[in-house]
Amino acid sequence: MREVLVIGGSRYFGRLLVTLLQEAGSRVTVVNRGSPPPAGVAHLVADRDDEAALRAACGPRTFDVVIDQVCYTPTQAEVACRVFADRVGRYIMTSTMEVYDPATSPGGLPAAPGVPVVEDAVRPADWPVRLDLPWHDPERLATVFDPATGYAEGKRQAEAMFTRSAPFRYASVRSAHVLGGGARDFTGRLAHYVERVSAGQPVAVHPDPLPTSFIQEREIAEFLRWAAAADFVGPVNATSHGELTAIELCDLVATRVGTPPRYQVVADGPASPFSFDRYYAMDNGRAERLGFRFGAVRDWLPTAIDDALAATQEGRHAVTRDR
């Protein structure tokens, strides 16, 4: 039986991942700051930023695989390299497509307009690591990076730290934008579109929004479960087939809620989630060559929209009942 430790795993697709690992026959342990895991899962309580506490919580335990759902900085990666040096054979970091976003890269990133980006566009072995930055202090870090840049740069540098220093086999899963899950989706990004379109409110978009990539909540959980049993190393993109612009997303929402979309074009200032003024999509060829088969975004998105609509309506009913 495979011993799997999930760092985080308390919400959204992390909880689903834990359940899928159990169903696959793995013995699962979750470590977090206190959120209870699903039934039948061993639970360790520790702040992953506290090296001594994390080491103490793990005690003498060893694991076949660690899946790190909440690694955001190179300092967290550095701690993990030390704590798990002698207790794990394979380590998977859940990363993000934000590592490719040229808008968040201090030095810029190479990009071919209209061509989905491949893993080599960001090579962790070559990426500079700045352990001197205030990664544990969001307010001080905001004086160096804006929040979006800090998140993306933290992920890039975390990948770089693991790539250079990991004493175990290491892989990073660069996830596309995750949609689905209805009320479980704490990000509220799909709900934003469903609520505004169904209410006839305008959606803020760029003058010419360009496509980006998506993956279903269950699909990314299944991908991580699959990755836990695989043996590849290095970064791999995880995205459903197909790309969507914010306009195309609105059109799909409109077909489900029965209300035509309205738009507010913004040349400057914030637009809605997933409205991009740059081409921003990933290539999933490496993952498919390794053996994983993705679905198509247009096949699963209608159900995700329906779930978001149901969650929105239930939320409105709950507010009414509370009154």
Rank of each mutant, 00 (worst) to 15 (best):
R2T: 09
L5F: 02
G8K: 10
R11K: 11
Y12E: 07
F13Q: 02
R15S: 00
L16S: 06
L17P: 03
T19M: 04
L21I: 02
L21V: 02
A24D: 14
T29H: 02
P36L: 13
P37C: 00
H43Y: 05
E51N: 07
T73K: 02
A77G: 10
G89I: 03
G89Q: 14
T94H: 07
M97K: 12
T104M: 04
P106K: 14
P106S: 14
G108T: 05
L109R: 00
A112D: 15
V117P: 01
D120M: 00
W127Q: 06
P128C: 06
V129I: 15
L141F: 11
F145P: 15
Y151V: 00
A152K: 05
G154T: 11
K155T: 00
T163L: 01
F168S: 05
R174F: 06
L179D: 03
R196P: 09
V197I: 14
G200S: 12
G200C: 11
L210Q: 15
I215L: 12
R218S: 09
L224D: 05
L224E: 09
D231L: 04
F232E: 09
N237D: 13
N237S: 08
H241V: 12
L244V: 03
E248F: 13
L249F: 12
C250I: 10
V253S: 10
R256S: 05
V257R: 10
V257D: 09
V266P: 04
G269M: 04
P273S: 08
D277E: 12
Y279E: 15
D283F: 01
D283M: 00
E288G: 03
R289I: 05
L290T: 02
R293V: 11
R293G: 08
R293M: 06
D299I: 09
T303C: 02
A304D: 11
D307Y: 02
A318D: 11
D322G: 07
